[in-house]
């Protein structure tokens, strides 16, 4: 198929960017979206134009490295990651705009690449269970009811891609944060630090410049791992408890 791509080009963090139009042809529907960009980059390279910078690594939908705004939708029209989006979701003649995630907490580094280290700093603030190596009790000493284990796993499936933030009109990171709160809060091992965790992580979230949640739900619909909105309810609940406990 033949497509017209309008792609954000920005030479560096401080440079001003612009949308540039690139026609591409001979795209097969079996290609992934990023393979389509690979094809374009090979053509640019051959013409002596610098290839478009974009992030990807696993290309299996699990590392969370990829992420593009595709015609206004985070990760494009399907519920999946950009790397797992295939060209069969598009039609011959389509015009597709491709932009980086837009959020104050995710500054652009170059072209389609952004800096998401703010997510790491939120985890540093408390997204862990303190268990030094070697100090662990026998794994079967604490059974975990299956429904709790399953819900914990569901929330732990977050890949830290940032699509939730990009999709949110407030650029809020609450879905990401709620997922971590739920992952650790459902487990018996996560209880001792539960109150402090939610307060510290939320403080960091706000300090990084992420917006607040106004219950719009765009985050969850954009999430490739289908993290449900109720993790944000969990976050709010945990926060109320923590404040009541004097955190």
């Amino acid at each position: 198929m033949n497509l017209t791509l309008k792609i954000w080009r920005q030479a560096g963090p401080k440079a001003t960017g612009e949308m540039v139009t690139y026609p591409v042809s001979g795209i097969s529907e079996d290609m992934s979206f990023l393979e389509m960009l690979d094809v374009l980059n090979e053509q640019l390279n051959a013409r002596g134009e610098e290839p478009i910078a974009f992030d990807s690594d696993c290309r299996e939908g699990i590392c969370g490295m990829c992420g593009l705004m595709i015609s206004g939708k985070a990760h494009g029209p399907e519920v999946t990651t950009t790397c797992q989006l295939h060209m069969r979701s598009f039609s011959d003649g389509d015009e597709i705009t491709i932009e980086p995630w837009r959020a104050d907490a995710f500054p652009v580094i170059k072209d389609l690449v952004v800096d998401r280290s703010s997510f790491d700093r939120i985890i540093q603030a408390g997204g862990f269970i303190s268990a030094n190596t070697g100090s662990a009790p026998e794994a079967h000493s604490v059974p975990v009811p299956k429904p709790k284990a399953d819900r914990s796993f569901m929330a732990a499936a977050c890949i830290g891609c940032g699509a939730c933030v990009a999709a949110c009109p407030n650029a809020s990171g609450m879905l990401f944060l709620g997922a971590k709160i739920t992952h650790l809060g459902e487990l018996p091992q996560g209880q001792p630090e539960r109150d402090a965790r939610v307060v510290n992580m939320l403080t960091q979230h706000d300090d990084e410049g992420f917006g607040g949640c106004t219950n719009i739900g765009e985050c969850s619909s954009a999430c490739p791992k289908e993290i449900p909105l109720d993790v944000i309810n969990q976050l709010n609940k945990d926060l109320r408890h923590a404040l009541a406990h004097g955190e």
């Binding site: 862990f128 070697g134 100090s135 662990a136 604490v142 059974p143 299956k146 284990a149 914990s152 796993f153």
Partner: peptide, 22 residues
């Protein structure tokens, strides 16, 4: 065997049976 103990203590949500064991 220590690895599994360590990971469970960190909150790795391994698959479990209905009885709550791994």
């Amino acid at each position: 065997a220590n690895i599994i103990d360590q990971c469970v203590a960190q909150g790795v949500p391994f698959a479990r049976e209905y009885g709550g064991l791994l």
